[in-house]
Design a protein around this nucleic acid. Structure first.
Ligand SMILES: [Mn+2]
Ligand SMILES: [Mn+2]
Ligand SMILES: [Mn+2]
Ligand SMILES: [Mn+2]
Lengths: 218, 218
DNA sequence: ACAAATATTTAGTTTTGTCTAAAATTATTT
DNA sequence: AAATAATTTTAGACAAAACTAAATATTTGT
């Protein structure tokens, strides 16, 4: 597959929400930042190659083969994101663009060894699961921190309240998007939580916890 | 620069032996595994961009600007080679092809951080020097091991005698291409050498040492 | 149900990088 | 100094991936 084909396959996969659902030409065009006519051309080519099921005017979906390619692509993308964050000190929001390029390098050994070098990570810096080499993918769900069960951990992926005071609070307490949070204990009295974040243990109120989203792997 | 342009620039640089020397169309075509007519087309484009000096029928050379690009490209290529060998356990002869792809990833931060992650290496797995960010390049020379001064070290890059018995000897003594060898001491009596290789100290005869090439940085 | 709005495809170009075949230039022999 | 050989360039074509403008199909609103 060419770089372009790989990106289209990934776009169709993501728009189909990981399911085999049918995706519209316009949706792909928007995602890929191209014109619908370009999408039609590419879809025809992918259809000829057996990567997608295509019925003119009705949309596209990935074939079994196409899904395999998509998952392999997602695997590469997310492993590179972990690499950039963990080994090269990139920040949460810088990893995506570079991974978008790195995911197209052709070498099976490269990915296998990268996986090993990273200690076989299960999720990427955005809390999304990394498909296994065979294409198995764990499910993740997004939950407010106060609804995460004791003992579970997840990655901080967003805030419900994005007011400056709240963001300032997070900053002061050294809580940032991309951080892994482990729920240690819940205070019965006021619902406040003891959590582990970046090697330190902190205590946060229920009000804070009910405004932070975590992505957790089941 | 596009991927293709970058590879042409690198080819012209290498054929010019790092000097600004003029290179023939056919030489570039051979190196790039393309046809001479394709090379002429590309050279014209690079000339328009101010990357090369071109006089029809007379050959090309890099401009100052072109040399900068070439050195930056060589830097990326060699840093990735070190990464593949050191961090991902690739072997000496596997690194080149993958680095040929990785060198085209566009991200200044990526290369800076990679350099840091690798501990600012000075040479690649083939003993070739890695240009600095500013484009400075150390000189290296190839010498037979028995001519390397005491205290100097280099990378094993070839053999003079490639007969099966000699290669078998190297294999048995765990000496391989790409290994870093440090010359510790020379025995006056028979010219034999004590060397350090992969954390171990071994003793080899002058006959062996005079059949192994090292690449050393000055 | 039918007109208007929206979505999708087709037709015709463009750019990049490649190719083959033919023409032009330069180098080598005799 | 011609003739021959080798190298290099030009001309014309092609595939990939994009675009614009026009045509066609589908969906929506009344
Ligand atoms: Mn990509
Ligand atoms: Mn991600
Ligand atoms: Mn390359
Ligand atoms: Mn090298």
């Amino acid at each position: 597959m060419t770089l372009s084909e790989e990106d289209y396959i990934k776009a169709i996969y993501h728009l189909g929400k990981g399911e085999n659902s049918t995706v519209s030409t316009n949706a792909v065009a928007y995602q890929m930042e191209t014109k619908p006519s370009s999408v039609t051309d590419m879809i025809k080519k992918l259809s000829d190659k057996g990567v997608v099921n295509y019925r003119p005017y009705k949309g596209v979906s990935l074939t079994e083969y196409g899904q395999k390619i998509a998952l392999s692509q997602v695997r590469k993308h997310r492993l590179w994101e972990v690499f950039l964050l963990e080994k090269l000190d990139f920040s949460w929001d810088e990893v995506h663009d570079v991974a978008e390029q790195l995911e197209h390098i052709k070498s099976e050994k490269l990915i296998d060894q990268l996986d090993k070098h990273l200690g076989f990570p299960e999720v990427d810096p955005h809390g999304d699961p990394i498909p296994s080499k065979k294409g198995e993918l764990k499910k993740t769900i997004k939950k407010l921190l106060n609804e995460v069960p004791i003992g579970a951990s997840g990655i901080c992926v967003g805030v419900k309240d994005s007011s400056p005071p709240f963001l300032k609070f997070l900053d002061r307490n050294n809580i940032a998007l991309g951080d892994t949070i482990l729920v240690l204990e819940k205070e019965e009295f006021d619902g406040s939580l003891y959590i582990r974040i970046k090697e330190s243990k902190i205590h946060i109120s229920d009000q804070i916890a009910s405004n932070l989203y975590l992505k957790i792997t089941e």
